[in-house]
Write a protein that binds this DNA or RNA. Structure first.
Length: 876
RNA sequence: GCCGGGAUGGCGGAAUUGGCAGACGCGGUGGAUUCAAAAUCCACAGUCCUUCAGUGGGCGUGAGGGUUCAAGUCCCUCUCCCGGCACCA
């Protein structure tokens, strides 16, 4: 009886060998050549546990890195830690551990897990964003931005997470629906976001809007369209026209509106201001007390809502200020409203055209404002603007000199005329807003500026960097920056005037700042003189292939592009796009089970459900199964590290890759380990069993004649080489490459069973098949490949071997099976030499017995023979 | 509403880009082995009809139409699902 054996038992051994003979990336200053390849997976936040969200991209990255090295590339494949951030701080508050300890402990644990998976990262280049030797340069970049006016401070209405007690950037706010209630929430903790007015630092990413857009075009199909589109959407460029109305207050003021439909300007029946509009204050000051109070309250109530909540399904409301605005083109006088539906976008003021804008139409209906049609359809649309706004393009009417023009013509002409009159002109607006980076929390990068009562804002001199984050801080979140509570940190001298009562800025930076440039630091991670050596950076960067999740489509990926452009502008680097190709991997989801019956109404794990079933507390009828994102609350998670401990790293890597194409979401099946694990075991056993037959023979001499079965085996082996190579050369659908590997093992098994005592040529073929498997599958399952490589008699590491080339001649079989159709329906197959001519194919096809049955008594209209593919007979 | 992406057996997913639909794996069924089970190995397996059987045939890639000798793949119309954005003037 065989004892329960431990399989695999060789992974730790090979990991040790690799550690001793590592293939590190070279530290070169020569210009980047096309043999230098920078592959990068997004570095993780050190949560302490490696989950599928990490295991998939790292496995993809590692496989590609190994493939590239075997193909003679000089590869950089680093990793590090996005180590600042709120989870550490929150955990610290909960468990009373210092965020620093929490973070480093987690890093230690995750580093072990990464090693255990056999990932071949360049560990020598590991970076930690929370270490002074890194954030010194985060601060340094900030100072450069300050100098160039890209970083600036302003009092602004910002998103504020009530749970995290800190500011959030626009990109970090998401709309969520909970219990039918839709609201704006923090991307991290899903708590409600409110608007708060606060002094904060901003980065002028809006100045880069056009370049960020142009860059997307340049990246083209090297980036998934999905991601590019999301970014385009987010930047939200819109071309329109600014039109200066004259507001008749006690003085005449210019009131500029932005519109994309300047052609409807003769249809304006009122002008509406956002409650935040600067003119509103002025208007309030000029109203009588009662009216002023009413308006002031309206503004206050509206602003109490977050901008997005205001945009939700709130009723349109507004207040007629009683003041008048003059239309610069028609000369018409229209009332000025302050309205809740007008956002502080564009100029924060709109010209309202109820006849041709749904929102204005709704508002006009409520406040009984006139509706004036100025566009008529050019098709046969029915139009009744009293009923419904007509928003299509058309031809102008009731528009004085512009009558008869089309929308497009009119917009152009009106813009030009306005410009000529000095009353406005073409204008481009963006939805993108500047990036607010001040965070009122502790565990982040300190902002290197000093507030001096005399000199104002003074940058910390570069030679005093880093501004170190103090350890001894009471970091309970109060809504105030924890650093405020640290007396020594905040007290400092003004570097400019030497004044003693200067204070440091006590906020820290958004953690997305830390990760906006880390990929450049990897190229020269230990430089303590400079952010990085220019030549060293140029040797590797930009990143050739960046692998990460789609959840960063807007956040990290837009910030990193912005930073790269800035660093390019200050002359530090020659490129202005950081990631030449982006691979957005999918999400591994899990099946959740929700039980609803008289006992319970909640999610249960698969094991729990099995137990409940046994106890009779739940049946298949009581449950809803859904494939969704793994989460604790849904109890549908699976832990790759646990799988690795049970089945080994290779089986886990294989299972992850085999699940489906890496860029698609796929569902984790708890049985998903069985196939890959069984495959590795059979492969191992079969190789060991056959080794005596093949280990001592060398290469087959040229001109070797193979028996048909051996020939078929060779064809299969070379097809595997061809298939795997093709997948690595761009498609990356490794599930199909692995499937082909499994198929070859099946072929080997049948071959061995049918050839108990193989002759010489058969043994060559068999060896070739084993070799093909070992080498081509080594990027996916490095330990097993390394082990079997040794079993086959190789002394050197499989990763030192050259990647094989498929031999087209070997892939070609002597005879092929060709399907024969009659009128497009399969009626038989014929065997014939692969080099057969069309005529031979046709002849043999017609001779087929079953085919005969279907063409009998019919006239052959056409005969189509595609060599090597198919024969189709058209008969009537 | 707008922008993307999807829909193929019981399940995950294949299909060299127009050429035998369902590779490979899971689950399932039958068999071998076993006192029995697990594990392992072998075989079968889209679906419906037909034949005692070997067999033979119809139908099949979300729905409907079209192009073609030939359509999962190309074109038109529609439905549903997923992701993102959304009072952005």
């Amino acid at each position: 009886m065989e004892e329960q054996r431990k399989f695999p038992d060789y992974e730790a051994k090979w990991q040790k060998v690799w550690a001793e003979h590592k293939q590190a990336a070279s530290d070169s200053t020569t210009p980047k050549s096309d043999r230098d390849f920078y592959i990068l997976s997004m570095f993780p936040y050190p949560s302490g546990k490696l989950h599928f969200g990490h295991a998939l991209p790292y496995t993809l990255t590692d496989s590609m890195a190994r493939y590239l090295r075997m193909n003679g590339y000089n590869v950089l494949d680093p990793t590090g830690w996005d180590a600042f951030g709120l989870p550490a701080e929150n955990a610290a508050i909960e468990n009373k551990i210092h965020p620093s300890k929490f973070t480093y402990d987690n890093i230690e644990a995750m580093r072990k897990q990464k090693h255990a998976f056999g990932y071949s990262f360049d560990w020598d280049r590991e970076v930690f964003t929370c270490r002074p030797d890194y954030y010194q340069w985060t601060q340094w970049i900030f100072l450069q931005m300050l100098e160039k006016g890209v970083a600036y401070r302003k009092k602004a209405r910002v998103n504020w997470c009530t749970h995290c007690n800190t500011v959030l950037a626009n990109e970090q706010v998401e709309t969520i629906v909970k219990d039918g209630d839709e609201f704006q929430a923090c991307f991290r903790c899903e708590s409600r976001v409110i608007i708060k007015e606060i002094d904060a630092w901003f980065l002028r990413i809006t100045d880069y809007a056009d370049r960020l857009l142009a860059g997307l075009d340049k990246l083209g199909d090297k980036w998934p369209e999905k991601v590019s589109n999301q970014q385009r959407n987010w930047i939200g460029r819109s071309e329109g026209v600014n039109i200066d109305f004259t507001a008749k207050l006690s003085t005449e003021e210019t009131l500029t509106v932005f519109t994309t439909r300047a052609d409807t300007v003769f249809g304006v029946t009122y002008v509406a201001l956002a409650p935040e509009h600067p003119l509103v204050e002025q208007i309030i000051a000029q109203l009588d007390e009662k009216k002023a109070k009413q308006l002031r309250e309206f503004v206050k109530d509206t602003l109490a809502m977050s901008e997005q909540d205001r945009a939700g399904d709130a009723e349109k409301e507004g207040i007629n200020t009683g003041f008048i605005a003059v239309n610069p083109l028609s000369g018409e006088e229209v009332p000025i409203f302050v309205a809740n539906y007008v956002l502080m976008y564009g100029t924060g003021a709109v010209m309202a055209v109820p006849a041709h804008d749904e929102r204005d139409h709704e508002f006009a209906g409520e406040y009984r404002l006139p509706i004036k049609q100025v566009i008529e359809p050019v098709n046969d649309d029915e139009v009744d603007v009293a009923e419904e706004a007509y928003t299509e393009h058309g031809r102008l009417i009731h528009s004085g000199a512009y009558d008869g023009l089309t929308t497009a013509e009119a917009v152009k002409k009106i813009a030009a005329d306005l410009k000529g009159k000095g009353k406005g002109g073409p204008q481009v607006n963006y939805k993108l807003r500047d990036w607010g980076i001040s965070r009122q929390r502790y565990w982040g990068c300190p902002i290197p500026v000093i507030h001096c009562p005399k000199c104002g804002i003074v940058p910390v001199p570069e030679n005093e960097l880093p501004v170190k984050l103090p350890d001894d801080v009471d970091f309970l979140p109060t809504g105030q920056s924890p650093l405020t509570l640290h007396p020594d940190f905040q007290k400092t001298r003004c570097p400019k005037c030497g004044g003693e009562d200067a204070r440091r800025d006590m906020d820290t930076m958004d953690t997305f700042v830390d990760s906006s440039w880390y990929f450049l630091r990897y190229t020269d991670p230990h430089n303590d003189e400079k952010i990085f050596d220019r030549a060293k950076c140029a040797h590797w960067a930009p990143v050739d292939l960046y692998i990460g999740g789609r959840e960063h489509a807007i956040l990290h990926l837009i910030y990193a592009r912005f930073y790269t452009k800035f660093l390019h502008d200050i002359g530090l680097i020659d490129f202005d796009e950081p990631f030449t190709r982006l691979y957005a991997h999918g999400l591994i989801q899990g099946e959740s089970i929700k039980v609803v019956n008289e006992h319970m109404n909640r999610y249960v794990s698969a094991e729990e459900f099995a137990k409940l079933k046994k106890e009779g507390k739940a049946t298949d009828k009581d449950i809803t199964r859904r494939i969704e994102k793994m989460s604790k609350s849904k109890k549908n998670g699976a832990d790759p590290t646990a799988l690795m401990e049970q089945y080994g790293a290779d089986a886990t890597r294989l299972a992850i890759l085999f699940l489906g194409p890496g860029d698609a979401d796929s569902a984790w099946d708890p049985n998903g380990m069985k196939g890959p694990y069984g495959f590795l075991r059979r492969w191992y056993d079969t190789t060991l069993q056959c080794a005596p037959m093949v280990e001592d023979i060398g290469e087959a001499p040229a001109g070797t004649e193979y028996p048909p079965a051996a020939k078929a085996l060779r064809a299969a082996a070379h097809s595997l080489i061809d298939k795997v190579t093709r997948e690595f050369e761009g498609r990356y659908a490794f599930n199909t490459a692995i499937a082909q590997g499994m198929a070859l093992l099946n072929d080997i098994t049948s071959f061995v069973r049918a050839n108990k005592q193989p002759d010489g040529p058969s043994r060559f073929a068999l060896r070739e098949a084993f070799e093909a498997m070992v080498v081509t599958l080594s990027p996916f399952v490095p330990h097993t490949a390394e082990e079997l490589n040794q079993v086959l008699g190789h002394k050197e590491s499989v990763f030192k071997r050259a990647w094989p080339k498929a031999d087209p001649a070997a892939m070609q079989l002597d005879e092929v099976e060709i399907p024969v159709q009659v009128n497009g329906k399969l009626r038989g197959t014929i065997m014939l030499p692969s080099k057969a001519t069309k005529e031979e194919m046709e002849q043999l096809a017609m001779a087929n017995e079953n085919v005969q049955k279907f063409v009998e008594g019919k006239k052959i209209n056409k005969l189509i023979a595609v060599p090597g593919r198919i024969v189709n007979i058209v008969a009537k």
